[in-house]
């Protein structure tokens, strides 16, 4: 598929009932880059990442205005195929959440949903996805074992593999390493750098060193607003806004 999958966000406001969680967010996210969202708890970064594959649809009283355009498509336009959107925009959560089934079935879940039935084809997707997630060598001999038996770090890479099996273009990661030890974190960070060749990656992180290590651009959120959005090097060495400076240097937050 040659379509573009850059993200353009214009004047995005989001309300949970009366509470405004996002205020006039504007952002352009390029393909094949890692973009990090940072900011104190409750600043709207997780809310924002969820708007990108309409996860907020599931929340009652959630209202969103403005435009979120992926490629050419406004994803909040009437008639948007949300299943297709979520196929293209995969998500990995803070806590690894494998399905209580075999490793193989976890990975095969999305391709089966999208109609792949042949075993040979599924085998190929499973192996490719696990390889991309850097997990293949560790699990190739136990694909039929329950995924719940994997370590936390392996479970998270399994979840990444499961997301990749749907062949997304964009991968959203909401604090994907906050529950992991440094070795597993390191593996996932390396993985993200590897994966950006093929995917666009957006990560919410509280770990600012992680943002500096892996991301090309960083957005700082505060009280629902994007205060500053710049290249990671610029934002961390010479932030333009006093609030960004105060937050990243630990003066508040």
């Amino acid at each position: 598929m040659d379509s573009k999958f850059n993200i353009t966000v214009r004047n995005c406001d989001l309300y949970y009932s009366e509470f405004q969680a996002l205020k006039d967010v504007n952002m352009d996210i390029d393909e094949h880059e890692v973009t990090a969202f940072i900011g104190p708890s409750g600043c709207g970064k997780s809310t924002f990442i969820k708007t990108l594959n309409r996860m907020n649809d599931l929340i009652e009283d959630c209202r969103i205005t403005g435009e979120i355009i992926i490629g050419e498509q406004d994803i909040y336009e009437k008639g948007t195929d949300v299943t297709m959107l979520r196929k293209n925009v995969g998500m990995v959560f803070q806590k690894p959440n494998p399905f209580p089934m075999t490793i193989y079935d976890n990975i095969a879940f999305a391709p089966r949903t999208f109609g792949i039935k042949k075993k040979a084809e599924l085998d190929e997707v499973v192996e490719r996805s696990l390889r991309q997630a850097g997990l293949w060598d560790e699990v190739r001999d136990r694909l039929r074992k329950n995924a719940m038996g994997l370590s936390g770090g392996q479970q998270q890479r399994l979840c990444i593999a499961r997301a990749l099996a749907a062949e997304p273009k964009i991968l959203l990661m909401d604090e994907p390493t906050s529950a992991l030890d440094p070795i597993s974190t390191g593996k996932i960070e390396e993985l993200m750098i590897e994966l950006k060749k093929e995917y666009t990656i957006i990560i919410v992180t509280h770990n600012m060193q992680q943002a500096t290590r892996i991301s090309d651009k960083t957005a700082f959120f505060l009280l629902g607003e994007v205060i500053e959005y710049a290249t990671t090097q610029e934002l961390f060495s010479n932030p333009k806004d006093k609030r960004t400076e105060s937050y990243i240097t630990g003066r508040f937050g």
């Binding site: 600012m208 060495s237 010479n238 400076e245 990243i248 240097t249």
Partner: peptide, 9 residues
């Protein structure tokens, strides 16, 4: 301390 921003500079 992994200083950033003006601290780093």
């Amino acid at each position: 301390e992994n200083p950033v921003a003006s601290d780093f500079r």
